[in-house]
């Protein structure tokens, strides 16, 4: 229905499409987070560790997201970079109760930031300090310290604590990302 799409866009009804990548260590809750955004009929009730990646679509208040939900297991992490080039934003998920592997997460983040595809782009990064409900979870502030986010200056970033099981904190993050991406889209137009 190309005509319909065109009409819808002309009327400003059709939402703009953006591509984001969801990365982070395994078991951090990436798939669970994305699942939360999906419409009730497409929701998945049986979440298993991701092998490779999955493409999921969901909508925020004014954007249509295509999310590449990547696998966080060690052997697949080096494949993330295959998808950097086309993405407009990044969601980096941290298991805030997994203090032991916080350094690993930091390492992976640094690799990502140093990647030639991303290094000089001012691409927005949203951090979820996920599993805030867990007993020994650290706060989002502590999390940003552990990851040394304060030194990340050439990209807009935002961190918020979340609980993917209840959805708490998730919308706050995506709203921020939506605003950032709209700015980028606006700039592109000009």
């Amino acid at each position: 229905m190309p005509f319909f799409d065109a009409l819808a866009r002309w009327l400003g009804m059709k939402k703009k499409e953006v591509n984001v990548m969801v990365v982070g260590l395994d078991n951090s809750g990436k798939t669970t987070i994305i699942n939360h955004f999906k419409s009730p009929e497409t929701k998945n009730h049986d979440i298993v560790p991701t092998v490779g990646f999955n493409v999921e679509k969901f909508k925020s208040k004014s954007l249509a997201f295509t999310a590449f939900d990547m696998s966080g297991q060690g052997r697949y992490r080096n494949l993330w970079e295959q998808y950097y080039k086309e993405c407009d934003g990044i969601i980096f998920v941290i298991d805030s109760s997994d203090k032991l592997r916080m350094v690993v997460a930091k390492e992976e983040l640094n690799l990502l930031l140093e990647n030639p595809e991303l290094k000089n782009r001012s691409i927005p990064i949203l951090f979820y300090a996920n599993k805030m409900d867990a007993r020994d979870a650290v706060s989002s502030v502590k999390c940003s310290h552990l990851l040394e986010l304060q030194s990340l200056s050439n990209k807009p970033w935002f961190i918020c604590a979340s609980n993917a099981l209840t959805g708490e904190g998730l919308h706050e993050g995506v709203d921020w990302l939506t605003d950032q991406l709209k700015i980028v889209l606006q700039k592109k137009k000009k």
Partner: peptide, 10 residues
């Protein structure tokens, strides 16, 4: 690295 498509196919 063709296993990258595993989850998508599943």
């Amino acid at each position: 690295d063709v296993i990258i498509v595993t989850s998508s196919l599943m």
